[in-house]
Design a protein around this nucleic acid. Structure first.
Lengths: 188, 188
DNA sequence: AATATATATGTCGAGTTCGACATAGTCGTA
DNA sequence: TACGACTATGTCGAACTCGACATATATATT
């Protein structure tokens, strides 16, 4: 049984054949927005998927110095992916270093605390801008597929839409927090 | 240098002295909402913090069968926590199994895809209800501290507020997604 | 009286993840 | 022509994480 990373790779290969290097790049972006992995994880996982007969590869020639192994899904791989997709997902273990800091924010100097939050707000703003650019690309390149749930473009757009919503709400929350910090201690 | 888990424990001990068992429970809830860890991680980490002189323990008697080690922060521990809090947080590695499934949703049968999303929506709804109960507890127990950023209650409320906002947006996104799935393939 | 659950602290092994190391050709820039 | 960045595939070790195992008393339920 593949790991989540394995299914991420199967999901990419279901869209198009790719080399290990290309898969590694795709794991940075766009998959990295919700599941990241470095190339040192990708290559062993890919070997595992092949020994489980879920993917196959053939050597093609490319610009690089090494042999290019292009991977594709097998019918069994396609089935494994479709079965996994509809199984309920485990609740996210939810590791957010920033929220962990916020939980202890009361121990910090107020001015430094404010800096931390405004810096985080800026980062969310940058991510939002990046997502908005990606949204424009969808509108440009695949306006009709975006509304058709049976297309790979729709699935990708759905994840992007979650990112947009998430960043907007994170910014609003940062704004609220800065407001509270600026108001300071108030005895009622 | 402690790990993030170490700082989570320091953050709990900055609020009150606790035993390893109590810390393990707190890592489930409320810390678990943004940073989870099982007791098998807590005990070794606690030993590490002690050898770094960031916490100290003394044996007290309790209801359990074993000795109760009650831990507290040292001045150095308090300093280490306050310094860590205001350092910028690393961007979250963002591992969301559900979004990974959504990225491959187009490979699934429409009816099963719909089931998956509505089930996820229900889970978000349950979490929202839980958070709302916790919010009521804040209003009941510490209405004045909630507005004072220098209190531990404010910090905890700030994280709760993020959870509330996150769940509401997640539900709205699920609703949008179900709507799209129900509309089905539309050729324009 | 028996059973299950909570208290309480730990160890162990398997799996996951990350950064660093290794190798080497191509292409654009200074 | 030297340098860095990109292409391309892989290994290695350290750290992190999780579930299972181990032990043993107090309390509540059946």
């Amino acid at each position: 049984m593949p790991s989540n990373l394995g299914y991420a790779l199967l999901g990419l290969l279901a869209r198009a054949p790719r080399t290990g290097y290309q898969l590694s790049q795709a794991m940075r972006e766009p998959i990295g927005f919700f599941w990241s992995a470095s190339h040192s994880q990708v290559y062993p996982e890919l070997a595992g998927l092949e020994s489980a007969r879920l993917v196959r590869h053939r050597v093609v020639d490319g610009p690089g110095p090494r042999e290019n192994k292009q991977y594709r899904l097998t019918p069994a791989g396609r089935r494994a992916l479709a079965d996994w997709v509809v199984e309920p997902a485990a609740p996210p273990s939810g590791r957010d270093e920033f929220l962990l800091k916020i939980y202890s924010l009361w121990t910090a100097e107020p001015a430094r605390a404010r800096d931390l939050v405004t810096k985080q707000r800026e980062q969310h703003h940058e991510m939002l801008a990046r997502y908005q650019e990606m949204e424009q690309e969808f509108v440009r390149d695949a306006p009709s597929e975006m509304a058709d749930p049976s297309t790979r473009q729709f699935s990708a757009y759905a994840t992007l839409r979650r990112g947009l919503s998430f960043e907007r709400h994170a910014i609003a929350w940062c704004d609220w927090l800065v407001e509270q910090l600026d108001a300071g201690p108030r005895r009622s």
